[in-house]
Lab assay of single mutants.
Amino acid sequence: SPQLSSEIENLMSQGYSYQDIQKALVIAQNNIEMAKNILREFVSIS
């Protein structure tokens, strides 16, 4: 969805990798808010 694409772009601009974002979305069943929480908790931005 376009909204999801812009959310993904936004997260990538914050330093998350596309791969990590995709993984979080799978775990969160495409719930972007939950995916963000997963990324915040489990992915360290280098």
Results as ranks from 00 to 15, higher is better:
Gln22Arg: 00
Gln19Pro: 08
Leu39Thr: 04
Glu7Gly: 06
Gln29Pro: 11
Ser6Gln: 12
Phe42Ala: 12
Val26Pro: 01
Pro2His: 14
Asn30Phe: 06
Lys23Phe: 06
Ile27Tyr: 09
Leu11Thr: 01
Arg40Glu: 12
Asn10Ser: 12
Ser17Ala: 08
Ser13His: 10
Pro2Met: 05
Ala28Phe: 00
Ser17Trp: 02
Met12Val: 11
Ser6Phe: 08
Lys23Ala: 10
Gly15Tyr: 00
Ile8His: 01
Met12Leu: 12
Gln29Ala: 06
Asn30Cys: 00
Asn10Met: 07
Ile32Cys: 08
Leu39Pro: 02
Ala28Gln: 01
Ala24Thr: 01
Pro2Phe: 07
Met12Gln: 14
Lys23Ser: 12
Lys23Leu: 11
Ser5Ile: 09
Glu41Thr: 11
Ser46Asn: 09
Ile27Gln: 15
Gln3Met: 15
Ser17Gly: 08
Phe42Thr: 15
Asn37Lys: 13
Lys36Arg: 11
Glu33Val: 09
Glu41His: 04
Ser13Trp: 04
Pro2Asp: 06
Ile21Val: 07
Ser17Arg: 04
Ala24Leu: 00
Gln22Leu: 15
Lys36Gln: 05
Tyr18Lys: 11
Val43Pro: 15
Leu11Gln: 00
Glu33Ile: 09
Asn37Pro: 09
Met34Gly: 15
Ser44Phe: 08
Val26Gly: 11
Asn30Pro: 06
Tyr16Lys: 02
Ser1Cys: 08
Asn37Gly: 10
Gln14Trp: 03
Tyr18Thr: 05
Gly15Asp: 01
Gln29Cys: 04
Asn10Gln: 10
Glu7Ala: 11
Ile38Pro: 06
Ile38His: 15
Val43Gly: 13
Gly15Thr: 01
Ile8Asn: 06
Lys23Asn: 14
Ser17Glu: 15
Leu25Thr: 01
Val26His: 06
Leu25Lys: 01
Ala35Glu: 05
Ile45Lys: 13
Gln29Asn: 09
Glu41Gly: 10
Glu7Met: 10
Ile32Glu: 07
Val43Asn: 15
Val26Arg: 13
Met12Ala: 07
Ala24Asn: 04
Ser6Ile: 11
Leu25Tyr: 06
Ile45Ala: 15
Lys36Tyr: 02
Glu41Cys: 02
Ile21Leu: 01
Gln3Ser: 14
Ser44Val: 09
Ala24Gly: 06
Leu4Phe: 13
Asn30Tyr: 00
Leu4Gly: 08
Asp20Ala: 07
Leu39Trp: 02
Ser44Ile: 09
Leu11Ala: 00
Leu11Tyr: 00
Ser6Leu: 14
Lys23His: 09
Leu4Lys: 06
Ser44Lys: 11
Arg40Lys: 11
Ile27Val: 09
Gln22Ala: 02
Ile32Leu: 13
Gln3Asn: 14
Val43Gln: 15
Gln19Met: 06
Ile32Asp: 06
Ala35Val: 02
Val43Ser: 14
Leu25Phe: 07
Arg40Ser: 13
Ile38Asn: 14
Ala28His: 01
Tyr16Ala: 04
Leu39Arg: 03
Ile8Val: 10
Leu25Cys: 03
Ser6Met: 10
Tyr16Cys: 02
Asn37Ile: 08
Ser17His: 00
Val43Phe: 15
Tyr18Gln: 10
Asn10Glu: 13
Ile8Pro: 00
Ile8Trp: 03
Ser13Gln: 11
Gln29Ile: 00
Glu7Ser: 10
Gln19Asp: 12
Ser13Glu: 11
Lys23Val: 06
Leu39Ala: 01
Ser6Thr: 11
Gln22Lys: 15
Ile27His: 15
Asn30Leu: 01
Asn30Thr: 01
Ser44Asp: 15
Ala24Ile: 01
Pro2Gly: 14
Ala28Pro: 02
Lys23Met: 14
Lys23Gly: 12
Ser44Ala: 12
Leu25Gln: 03
Asn37Ser: 10
Leu25Val: 06
Lys36His: 03
Ile38Tyr: 15
Leu25Pro: 01
Lys36Val: 05
Ile32Tyr: 03
Met12Trp: 05
Asn31Gly: 02
Ser44His: 10
Asn37Tyr: 08
Glu9Asp: 12
Asn10Pro: 03
Leu4Met: 07
Asn10Ile: 04
Ala28Lys: 07
Ile45Glu: 15
Ile32Ala: 09
Glu33Thr: 08
Asn37Phe: 03
Leu4Tyr: 12
Asn30Ala: 03
Tyr18Ile: 12
Gln3Cys: 12
Asn37Trp: 05
Val26Trp: 03
Ser46Phe: 01
Ser5Cys: 08
Ile32Phe: 06
Leu25Met: 08
Gln14Ser: 11
Leu11Cys: 04
Val43Glu: 15
Glu33Pro: 14
Ala24Pro: 01
Ala28Cys: 05
Ile8Glu: 05
Ile45Leu: 09
Ser1Trp: 02
Leu39Gln: 03
Pro2Thr: 13
Asn31Ile: 01
Ile21Phe: 00
Leu39Val: 06
Val26Leu: 11
Arg40Gln: 12
Ile45Met: 13
Gln14Ala: 10
Val26Gln: 12
Ser1Tyr: 04
Asn31Gln: 09
